[in-house]
Design a protein around this nucleic acid. Structure first.
Lengths: 224, 224
DNA sequence: CCAAAACTTGACCATACGGTCAGTTATTCA
DNA sequence: TGAATAACTGACCGTATGGTCAAGTTTTGG
């Protein structure tokens, strides 16, 4: 929610409006995630929301406006999920926690992740300023702290910017491309299970911590 | 190209047909990658190809048919890029080579990668059989060989299936979400540069090899 | 050189789509 | 309770879209 009409956000004021906007945005997130902006129809969003089409336009004017509201909410969610990292923190714990938090998002909000992915694939016409602004700053800040940790000998030297990028790639793939991994793993209905997310989380944490010299290398088996 | 009408594939037979199909499919790949199936119009594909719209329908009947032709070609490309791995091969070299090959594809055919990504995000209605068939088999074969290497003490024990998934995630992110990384890196026109791909490739190789115990852990700096 | 086959395309059609609006019903609050 | 405000929605509109077609032009192969 970008700061707009916050006036009536509490205490029954515009209660119906709030509820219906939420309902419509939830339906829209689902439909947009499956068909992208151009491929989604206001009629199908209305159907998903269980409301007549004109109602959607009553609350959101145009399809573009509705889409922006959905994307803005997702961007806010993304940004708020970025924990603060401080110079004094423990690298291994911090990295593992961050990976867990991102995986939790992939599991709980896969549609949001896919709307975002759709937007990126299309060249991100609507979130350019977010990418080159808030997100860029966040990456620079975080990688600066990681670099400090390296200087202080708290972790091994790595390319910290790419480290962050690749953490995102590995965590988001489990939301965006769920069907691919579920199919390859032979899961029913092409949906991943609780346990798949846990196993993936562990695998990513291990990979990242080993890369940063924060986990001892496992012994190789002695040849059979 | 799925084996269809191979008869007229050489020697000027159907030369015009071949050339125009190629031209249209190339334009279609570009348009589909940006708008997905439902969001792409035959008119915009025609414009991109520099041909009248009716011409597209002359060669490909329906939009659906054209889309399938494009997706089939991409699936073939993907499958053919999977190098054979043999039990006797050297793990470090093999893994590094595979990562380089995948990154080469991300750099040279980003649109193809995005069409594929679009299809996955939508739940892969058209490539389900490929995912659960050829691709599943490929992953099982490859991870079996990696497991053998682990048994033989040639590399450290890791979750080989997730290893493969995460290599894909890290390599494809540079094609699918190029605009995100280019924006965060502050690149002009939001396009990645040659050097970005090299750096990313090195980072992924290092990450994977360290994870498998195939690269010595770098020394930590002694505290400042 | 010629006729058959392949290719080309402007004009057209039915449908789907985003969006509007006027008339109605439900809610709020003094 | 009543009047003002907010919410609701069926019917409608202009445009965009996928697809067709018939009339033409070009290419092919004997």
């Amino acid at each position: 929610m970008t700061s707009k009409e916050i006036t009536e956000e509490t205490n029954n004021q515009g209660r119906i409006r709030q509820e219906n906007r939420k309902r419509i945005m939830s339906a829209a997130e689902k439909v947009f995630s499956q068909n992208g902006f151009r491929g989604s129809t206001t009629a199908s969003i209305a159907e998903e929301a269980g409301l007549p089409k004109a109602n959607i336009h009553y609350y959101f004017g145009t399809k573009e406006e509705l889409y922006r509201a959905v994307v803005d909410e997702i961007v806010d969610l993304w940004l708020s999920s970025f924990r603060e990292i401080h110079e004094g923190d423990d690298p291994a714990t911090t990295l593992a926690d961050y990976i867990r938090a991102k995986m939790e998002l992939s599991k709980s909000r896969p549609e949001a992740s896919r709307v975002f992915a759709n937007e990126l694939i299309r060249g991100a016409p609507r979130i350019q300023s977010y990418l080159a602004g808030d997100l860029k700053k966040w990456v620079e800040q975080k990688s600066a702290i990681l670099d400090k940790w390296i200087e202080q000998g708290k972790m091994a030297p790595v390319d910290t910017t790419r480290l962050i990028f690749h953490i995102w790639a590995m965590t988001q793939t489990w939301a965006d491309f769920e069907v691919q991994w579920a199919s390859v793993l032979g899961r029913e209905d092409n949906r991943l299970e609780e346990q798949d997310f846990e196993q993936a989380t562990n695998s990513i944490i291990t990979t990242v911590l080993r890369n940063c010299g924060l986990l001892p290398l496992p012994e190789r088996r002695t040849g059979v």
